[in-house]
Amino acid sequence: MAETTTKETNLRQANAKATAVGVVSEKDLKIVTEDGKNKVTGHITVKTSDVNFVKYNVNVNEKTKAGTDNKTYAGIQTVMNEYKSIAEVGEEEATKVRVTGDISPFTDKQSGEKKVAYKSNFFNRLKSDEDYEPHAEFAVEVFISGINPELDADGVETGRIVVSGWMPTYNGIEPIDLVAEGEVGQAVDSGFEVGQTVEFYGDIINNRIETVTEIPVKIGKPRRKVKVDYKSDLIITGASEPYEEGITPEVPYVADTIQAAIQERANRLEEAKAKAQSGAKASTAKPSGAAHGRSLGF
């Protein structure tokens, strides 16, 4: 049997943290049972300013893989039963929280746009005597694949710089875009190159966009259909030195390994597409990966 080489197994999962301090805006959690096992699923939205809302997805099993009680499950039950949202009691009485979570980049299947989701199972109530400084911040390791000017819908440069990259995750590898503005944008443009591994950090700007559509009816008032979307930007405010093997504590990602993981991702997506078209189920096996301007060919 021929030996198979899988470079993807060398990819470590990237650090990708999303922290927030704010007030609980919405809370939608419920206990569900799957295959005889209970878990809490849903989301909590944290308001950090009048226009900034960060939605954290929640998914906590009652039992660990070993069958013992999951301590995190008890904590989430406390969140369900005791934490109050603005939607429930108004902003003055809503629970102020500190959240430690993760960034999950993904590609929207319909639009093809690169997006990010946030997830966390760890919510801590702020005590009444704690300083309350609302904010939402990120820190993420990225293999840089492109540094280019941002263009608007008409193809005109906005003045911002887009850092495109690849982020190895628990489920494989995903593309992610970060944005730099002003002097930081100039520093990023001149200070980094494609192919480098860098930890960027900055602010999560996640605006809640509510679209209301009126549906005509024959009798009575028109019905209102409300659609809520979140427009997310990860705004760079700082960055580490580029990782260098033997120099920085963190080891950089290798371009060949990243490219192999990208190809594995493409193969997996093609397989899923083909099976969806044929009506068969896609494989559930996890992958092994964890104009001006410059861009790599992958």
Rank of each mutant, 00 (worst) to 15 (best):
K286G: 02
G279P: 04
T100Q: 13
R160S: 14
V54A: 06
D35K: 13
E34A: 05
D233M: 10
Y118K: 11
T6Q: 13
H292R: 12
G202V: 08
I209Q: 14
D50H: 15
E241F: 13
A18S: 08
S104P: 11
N81K: 13
N61P: 11
R160K: 14
V24D: 07
A66S: 01
A187C: 01
E183Q: 12
V188E: 04
N52V: 00
V58N: 11
D129Q: 11
V54N: 06
T284V: 12
S240V: 01
V184L: 10
E93D: 15
A94Y: 02
E34R: 06
E26G: 03
K84S: 06
V194P: 00
E271F: 03
D229E: 13
T107F: 11
K39F: 13
I209R: 12
K37R: 14
N57P: 06
G220E: 02
I144W: 03
H43S: 15
A260K: 01
V156P: 04
V23F: 07
E210F: 05
E130M: 00
Y83Q: 12
S283T: 09
H43Q: 15
K127L: 06
V188Q: 08
E3P: 14
T284P: 00
N70R: 09
I44C: 00
K109H: 05
Y83K: 08
R294Y: 09
G293M: 03
V194W: 09
K127M: 07
E8R: 00
V188F: 01
L126W: 03
T95S: 08
T33V: 08
H43D: 15
P216K: 12
M1W: 04
V194A: 06
R12H: 07
I147Q: 06
V179D: 07
A255Q: 08
R12D: 09
D69I: 01
T9N: 11
K63Y: 03
R98W: 12
P242C: 02
V97G: 02
S288F: 12
M1G: 04
T248M: 02
A266T: 15
N15W: 09
E271G: 02
